[in-house]
Amino acid sequence: METPLPEQRSNPGGPSLPPQEGRRAPDAGRDSRGVLFTGDLLLALGVLGLAAFLFAGALNIRVSPSYAHIGPRFFPFLVSGGLGACGLALLAQAARRAPAKSGSLEERPAASGKPPVVGDAPKPAVYWPSVAIVAAALAGQFLLMERAGFVVASALLFWAVAFAFGSRRYGRDILVGIGLAFVVYVVFTRLLGLHLPGGMLTTMLR
């Protein structure tokens, strides 16, 4: 540990560090230009979709005929128009990056002599299982908050997120989660006077 380590800052696609604390190591660096292109395309289409949605919604805003000045539709049209323009620009950028022509894409940024665009570098692969668990844990908080109460729901959220982040010390995690949720519950409801659903604790603490 005494020797100065080489810089490890943001080396996308570089060798991943050895897994720690029972972490699984997905194959980072698998990403290629093709994946990047798909992402850009999806982003452009998403923005265009939002613009279309806003435009359609703006048409449905009722304007009272007696209102002479620019009404509640004007700004929505403006925003949807702006988003539409951005979407088209993103689409053009994505098309320029399309992985079609003769596989010479790796050389292109260097050859064209342009300053490298931020985000042009290939990104490390997404580890989807962890993302899905965190999202599901948040949906669980939504479903359980009022049914099971804040403490139970939050302890479960804490435990699930810790699991998604690679922790396998189930006992410690659930204890820390319950402790944290309980302290927060007491401080927020008793000291700060906020209302949180107590669930079964409402009867216990009385």
Binding site: M145, F158, F165
Partner: peptide
């Protein structure tokens, strides 16, 4: 540790 950190962040976020 990262697992506990993000667990805590999301508990406070939803709260």
């Amino acid at each position: 540790p990262q697992p506990l950190l993000y667990g805590g962040i999301l508990v406070f976020a939803t709260l």
